[in-house]
Design a protein around this nucleic acid. Structure first.
Lengths: 335, 335
DNA sequence: GTGAAAGCGCTAACAA
DNA sequence: TTGTTAGCGCTTTCAC
């Protein structure tokens, strides 16, 4: 008995169905039936098999199963950075939906590098994921063609990619419009916009929303009040604006990292930020934000993907999620 | 030509090495050699193969490869919740180390439920991960035995598990001692401790550090100043202490969520919190914390794991990482 | 209710 | 330098 292990271990150190079959004195196929809970096995036989499984520490080899069946019960997720709360929120939601579908999530961070995104996606495809959720780092998704042709559905999340696929994004444009309008309504005529690099889709959309809001209010768009670039340049840019002749009285920040960067400069001025963040309500004054809902974004993308995986038909969908203005004080300061 | 796809697609909708071999007019093994960059293939032949690969959109089937080789080039990671910045920090670090080792990370959130932890781990084992990093949700890890026997190395992170395995944790005890001593040095004689449920290892260790610090200072340990429980109960507990005869003048909070919960109560008192958090420096006063380093924790665990995967010998190691006190104002307030 | 045989796509071992 | 053969562990098909 205590010997079974040594006798039955296969080359890779794990017992196989064959080993279990031998130990239980049945055929391979019977073990397979028990493991997969197929009907039509004599309860007594099943019992013998189960006890052998227990005794040997048998665990089905998923690779072999996948090889035979073609379905992996896993999906691939490419985000920018798990350590960023916005993306980890998406991750968690995707994970939850996948769990409900009995699926595992392979995920990886692209770090906003198109090469890394591609590498991750292709690795996932090599592992024959059933589908992909991608936060696009680049705009060229030609590399996806063969995978899509092979029947792997893919969904773009947070930004559209370079292919006409299912896409779930936030209403960046409208959200920025709302936030900027909020500042204007509170008496500001010179509102600065600090956004991420304009090459990033969400940043460009939000800038567009800013411009629309300023124009809709009948105010002139002053390009010297607009600065686009990586978050670490936001602080200096704002300081430069303040040093000018006709400084802004309010600022709209284009994402969470830029909001924080501006807060760290210590400039005390009216502001509304895109993206909510923990403790925004505890700062003095509380930081007014245009909030996205990363969990909802992740959920929507995952649900859309699973619908496709299960054969859902039809043209590419584009879902746009609303944003929500949360007034907390900083956006209600008068000039 | 445009026809190749239809002709060569296999049952599962993807071309196989066999298809590529046929298209390139070589043997299967030659394709394998090219795909795996094995030496000794005539450049001209290799060229033909590569072009066939390109044309057919061939991608190696990793499941088949794994089945044959026994190594999956992937590791499993079980954390409590990806959406929590502490754990997503760990995730990111693990991912980075895995990337350097050419490995993929399968990860999942246990939500602090032992059953879910077990389920995730066993799913990962079914997929034949090369190793596991586990933030234990429970203390009974008997279910791991067969997997360990089968040669899958595992590392516990953040907390020890119920088995004598490699473990990487923070100096919870020492960190709490440092933080509490800091408050006492600033004149506080009645320091409250608000910690997570005492059944959680880290919470118990930190409580122990608190007790030691109080005793080392020659002060009496007053149990009415200690409250252990889930973060949502921390605020009420503190309020109750304040309503008492001899309220605390300072509080030490046992983790980040409790720190935030206490901040939200609006009580203005001296405090030091375990765990650093974004914007702690921007609150007024800045929040003094005992900081852990999740990235370092993740990195250490992953490096230890890969050492084991590559056959590193020896008894189970236990690595304890230091914490760091960061004074920002709240911990330096006098009674 | 049970089993034997074939084969998923790949790599390892051994020819040629 | 290239090819042939066997078989990884499982599911599928069909026979008993």
């Amino acid at each position: 008995m205590g010997d079974d292990r040594a006798v039955t271990d296969s080359v890779h150190g794990r017992p196989t169905m064959k080993d279990v079959a031998a130990a239980a004195g049945v055929a391979l196929k019977t073990v397979s039936r028990v493991v997969n809970e197929e009907p039509g096995v004599n309860p007594a036989t099943a019992e013998r098999v189960l006890s052998a499984i227990e005794r040997l520490g048998y665990r089905r080899n998923e690779s072999a199963r996948v090889l035979r069946r073609g379905r992996t019960a896993s999906i691939g997720l490419v985000i920018e950075d798990v350590a960023d709360p916005f993306y980890s929120g998406i991750s968690r939601a995707v994970e939850d939906v996948a769990l409900r579908h009995g699926s595992l999530v392979l995920s990886g961070s692209s770090g906003e590098e198109p090469r890394r995104e591609r590498e991750l996606v292709l690795t996932f495809c090599s592992r024959r994921v059933d589908g992909l959720i991608i936060v696009p780092a680049g705009t060229d998704h030609g590399y996806l063609r063969p995978e899509l042709d092979a029947g792997i559905p893919a969904v773009f999340a947070d930004r559209p990619g370079g292919l006409d696929l299912d896409t779930v994004i936030c209403d960046n444009n409208g959200g920025a419009h709302t936030g900027v309008t909020h500042l204007i309504r509170h008496g500001h005529r010179r509102v600065a916009f600090l956004g991420d690099s304009a090459s990033i889709f969400t940043a460009a959309e939000r800038l567009y929303g800013y411009r629309r809001a300023v124009e809709d209010a009948g105010l002139p768009v002053d390009e010297s009040l607009v600065a686009m670039g990586p978050p670490e340049r936001a602080g200096p840019a704002l300081t430069r604006m303040f040093a000018g002749d006709d400084p802004p009285t309010a600022v709209f920040t284009g994402n969470g990292r830029i909001t924080v960067a501006v807060l760290r400069t210590g400039h005390r001025l009216a502001m509304v930020g895109f993206d909510d963040f923990e403790l925004a309500d505890l700062l003095v004054p509380g930081v007014t934000v245009v909030a996205q809902d990363p969990a909802r974004l992740g959920r929507a993308a995952a649900e859309l993907l699973f619908r496709r995986i299960m054969g859902g038909p039809g043209a590419a969908e584009r879902i746009e999620l609303p944003t929500r203005l949360i007034p907390r004080g900083s956006g209600e300061l008068r000039p």
